[in-house]
Amino acid sequence: MDSAPSVLEVRRDRFARRLPGALAELAGPAHGTVSLPLHLAWSGLTRFDLDQPRLRMSCYRTVLAEGRHDDLARYLNRDLLIGMWPVLRGLVSRDIREVWEGAFTELAPAVRAAV
């Protein structure tokens, strides 16, 4: 008899299904103000100035946690994500971190340390 998947497995699967095929698909803005729709920013701020590091980090945390596949491509920027990842990885849940680092070698800690 098969056992039901754990909550952790369900969460990781949910995040994995949302991933882009490659980080190059993340074509969101690198500067300026971003207004997130309510299905992403349902609590708290909805507008984020990407030129302010704390607001940029908050925006990315929100999109990573709540975003659908299309949201990730629309609101995240590949270069910003890679640059912010060493700090951002400590601000997102472990399942988000492990799914993203497992899918994209550019984000894996060992790869970043070698660069």
Rank of each mutant, 00 (worst) to 15 (best):
residue 113 A to P: 00
residue 112 R to C: 05
residue 95 D to E: 15
residue 90 G to Q: 05
residue 58 S to T: 15
residue 85 W to C: 06
residue 62 T to E: 01
residue 101 E to R: 10
residue 64 L to D: 03
residue 7 V to K: 15
residue 38 L to F: 06
residue 11 R to E: 12
residue 107 L to G: 01
residue 34 V to H: 01
residue 95 D to N: 15
residue 4 A to K: 05
residue 89 R to V: 02
residue 92 V to W: 02
residue 11 R to D: 13
residue 58 S to A: 15
residue 58 S to Q: 14
residue 4 A to L: 12
residue 111 V to D: 12
residue 91 L to K: 13
residue 96 I to W: 09
residue 109 P to T: 02
residue 87 V to W: 02
residue 72 L to Y: 01
residue 57 M to F: 10
residue 55 L to N: 10
residue 39 H to K: 15
residue 11 R to Y: 05
residue 108 A to D: 11
residue 27 A to S: 10
residue 7 V to R: 15
residue 86 P to S: 13
residue 45 L to H: 03
residue 35 S to I: 09
residue 86 P to V: 05
residue 74 R to N: 01
residue 6 S to E: 12
residue 38 L to G: 11
residue 30 A to E: 13
residue 87 V to P: 01
residue 92 V to D: 10
residue 104 F to L: 14
residue 72 L to M: 05
residue 106 E to R: 14
residue 101 E to D: 09
residue 27 A to C: 08
residue 97 R to Q: 12
residue 25 E to A: 09
residue 61 R to D: 03
residue 31 H to Q: 15
residue 101 E to Y: 00
residue 93 S to K: 14
residue 98 E to C: 12
residue 57 M to L: 14
residue 92 V to T: 02
residue 18 R to G: 08
residue 114 A to E: 11
residue 86 P to T: 03
residue 9 E to L: 09
residue 103 A to D: 13
